[in-house]
Amino acid sequence: MDISLEKEANREKEIIRGCCRGKARSQEALYRSYYAFGMSVCLRYAPNREDSLEILNDSFMKVFENIKSYDDSRPFKSWFRRILVNTALDHYRINRKFRINHTGDEDAAETGIAPELDQKLSAKEILELFYRLPDPLRLTFNLYEVEGYSHDEIAGMLDISPGTSRSNLSRAKKMLQRLYLEMKNKQCHEAV
């Protein structure tokens, strides 16, 4: 193992041991180390930035409360990611409204021709698109395409049927295509 990587791993173990003992300095170190990673997950699931921070802090609270149950033979990042996703889903379940106000625009604006993703989007640009997606569509897209969960698993997580999960994913993709085209047109228009 690379010396720097080994040092990093030892440092992380030390921090986690400190967290197990409830040391404030270790907790702060862990928070600082995993803040960006945590935000990268939360931003994709939450409907806005404020909610992302709330989910992140809720997740860290769970980490500090349950750090003793963490199996240090496995990567901390994977364990933390699972907590982040579960917390985001809890957040969604608590805050979701019965009636999802679909505009129906995603289907109406379908062109039938898939656009080409000719340039890589930045995280900021992706979030701009995500924030315009309805919550269930955004969650389904992330859970399926990014995290790799199956539709059956997603159905259990979101308390929906697997068919609804498939439908949500399909609608999310169509809507993302349309939003991407809108964003690209806007950029061209601004450039001109």
Binding site: R44, P115, L117, A123, E145
Partner: peptide
């Protein structure tokens, strides 16, 4: 597009960097 976009999302957020907001801590 869908596959490319999913790859783009993973890549963008795997390398996501953000300075910590002091108020967050």
């Amino acid at each position: 597009f869908d596959d490319k976009f999913a790859d783009n999302v993973r890549e963008a957020f795997d390398n996501f960097e953000e300075e910590m907001d002091p108020k967050a801590w």
